[in-house]
Design a protein around this nucleic acid. Structure first.
Lengths: 371, 371
DNA sequence: TACGGTTCTGCAACCGTTACTGGAACGTCG
DNA sequence: CGACGTTCCAGTAACGGTTGCAGAACCGTA
């Protein structure tokens, strides 16, 4: 459908979709065409659009008129190639379907969007190998920076990969060797954990279990260390049980089963993550173990479930959206004027609720699991 | 609470490039350098790497050796610019922090990743204006396709923007005018809803409320229509109350308050979304209204909360990860061999649970199944 | 030796920008 | 009137790849 009458502008196939010009997908106009229409050099168009001072008023007029007439919009790809930056940020995380992660992404995306950056997301499915694959992928995509919530802080391949990365890195709730020069947005997990364990001890618990995820991540380690420190500093003898594993419902279930099967089950269980809590509660219901009566439960993530559960689940809350926003801000700071790696620590707050009650023996001597 | 990294050994800039050369961020090698090292033309390198047939074995050897020696990796940007495709997909959604959405993204990301595509996401925060802004943004980013979960199907600016889009579009749980030529991955909300309403009527409810989100989205409309159809087709007189609004905890709370304040409150409430359920349960607890006793509740999303709540919340479940995967597959199909828009409908399943019990007046007298 | 036919390889244009360089046009001043 | 400084703009080389095309090298055959 090409017309060739010799005179006038060539009508190309893409004009088929032109119609009245108000709708339909037209081919994008290039700078070249703007320049031709305005009868100036292509470089002048560039100067007008990028606000270069060497531009006279009449020329600016002509160029801008051509731009609006052709609905010209600069090509992001070409700009990125030329300028050496893509205005995009890669985010590697274990699993976006975890509401905690999703909140973090929400906060980060909003902050980055405000600065003109867009966010690429990849799930590592808690596999360190995927972590490093994704990091490599992002680098080949030429992202300007990365935000990472790694499955493991210790995977050699990932660390080696990170050393090769030449864009700023921000980790979320992780700690990396200093030579990687990563900024970090972390929570003060020790604070909330300390308060929670002290509370449990204060109301009479002497056998306390911690179900947690990988200790190759900061939250896993910090929570365990904090609990250990509190118990060691205590006058009374307290029996801790540590069950690290993965941040999954399955581990929550398995660990809870194991705990309840013990000859002397713990009187309190701390679940270090919302998925662990789900698994734990499921097993408690299965076995007819009553939360807040037979066993006390504390969760480290405050999700709707913990607030609405009957009895409400005592929780260590934190501002996850804020954590994501902070991570993005740290990255933006390094993207604009690289100031070197920084670490920002955000608070955690323990909220006691009915699920953290005195243990059975304190209340009247009912044997646990007598439901 | 901001702490600068001050501890540990200072790593100076010169250290970064020192060492044995096996780590640290080196400048990327370009094709030019590979060609020089292998002593062939730059175009030959390209042909070797892109699997062009016109390549002799010895040359392939030399080029590949140079590639590995320089750790060459092609520049994605340059490739994209030249080839006219970016291998990236934009996903616009209301709010990634909604677990349903997060699941959809999870499924979509995995499927796209498998095909070499990466995913850009932007939150519209339920604002149709942001929807259209994001769509425009993605187009200027030259994504190869888009997956959309729009805040509204009827926003004129968004629809106009969509008509301008020249890449394939897939909507998730939305329906668009046919001229936009969007593929669609949707759930059969009517099926689950029909089963749920029939169940409620069967156990004796005669005043049933539906709290739902925007009727400018497919799930909002379909659920309401399905409920209406069931009730109209019913012998007994059933009183429906429809409270559409937004998919937010706030609307869930406000609507529930309004319902409970009525002179004759409904005996059953259907919450059309997990955030609405959260708001609804919160108000019930606040007022001491007992779920499954004073009022029956059904939720349209099966989240951990509904399973674990006491009593468990009857739910209309669906495979959200599968929905995301399906959307991605529909898009991939159009990206590889454009076959025109398609629609895939996935099932929903109603799971009765204790929260959907006979209404109070029924339980005082005859047993529920006495009909 | 000349010739036609395959294989392989290099040249150069191109994708759509940006930024550097040089110089035209104009005004000012000695 | 000519040297010089401004102001403004065109030309062009990148950025890092891909690809059509022309031609070199090689082979077998007459």
């Amino acid at each position: 459908m090409t017309m060739r009458d010799g005179s006038g502008p060539e009508v190309t196939v893409s004009d088929m979709f032109g119609g009245d010009g108000s709708s339909g997908a037209r081919r994008r106009a290039s700078m070249r065409e703007v320049a031709d229409l305005a009868d100036v050099a292509i470089s002048s168009v560039s100067r007008v659009l990028s606000g270069h001072p060497d531009v006279s008023a009449p020329m600016r007029e002509r160029v801008l008129a051509a731009v609006t007439q052709l609905e010209y919009e600069p090509d992001f790809l070409a700009q990125s190639l030329r300028r050496g930056m893509t205005l995009s940020v890669g985010f590697v995380l274990a699993d976006i379907s975890n509401p905690l992660m999703a909140d973090i992404v929400l906060g980060a995306e909003a902050a980055l969007r405000g600065a003109g950056y867009s966010l690429l997301i990849m799930n590592s499915e808690n596999d360190p190998q995927l972590d490093s694959t994704h990091i490599r992928f992002f680098q080949s995509r030429r992202v300007d920076g990365m935000i990472l919530s790694l499955a493991s802080e210790q995977d050699p391949a990932t660390l080696e990969m990170l050393r090769q990365v030449d864009v700023p890195i921000v980790v979320v709730d992780r700690r990396l060797p200093p030579e990687i020069r990563a900024s970090a947005a972390v929570n003060d997990h020790a604070a909330g954990m300390t308060a929670a364990v002290r509370h449990l001890i204060a109301v009479g618990h002497r056998r306390i279990a911690l179900i947690t995820g990988s200790i190759e991540t900061l939250p896993g380690r910090e929570r365990m260390n904090a609990m250990r420190r509190v118990i060691e500093a205590q006058q009374e003898h307290v029996d801790p049980i540590y069950l690290p594993g993965s941040f999954s419902e399955e581990h929550g279930e398995a660990a809870t089963r194991q705990l309840l099967d013990r000859p002397a089950p713990p009187t309190a269980i701390i679940c270090g993550g919302n998925q662990l809590l789900v698994g734990c509660l499921r097993v408690c219901q299965e076995r007819g173990v009553q939360v807040g009566i037979d066993v006390s439960i504390v969760s480290t993530d405050d999700i709707p479930l913990s607030e609405l559960y009957q009895p409400p689940i005592a929780s260590i809350a934190r501002d996850t959206v804020g954590l994501g926003r902070t991570a993005a801000e740290l990255l933006l700071r390094r993207l604009t004027h690289d100031s070197g790696p920084e670490t920002v620590v955000l608070p955690t707050v323990f909220t006691p609720r009915a699920s953290a009650a005195p243990p059975p023996e304190q209340r009247g001597g009912l044997p646990p699991g007598a439901g």
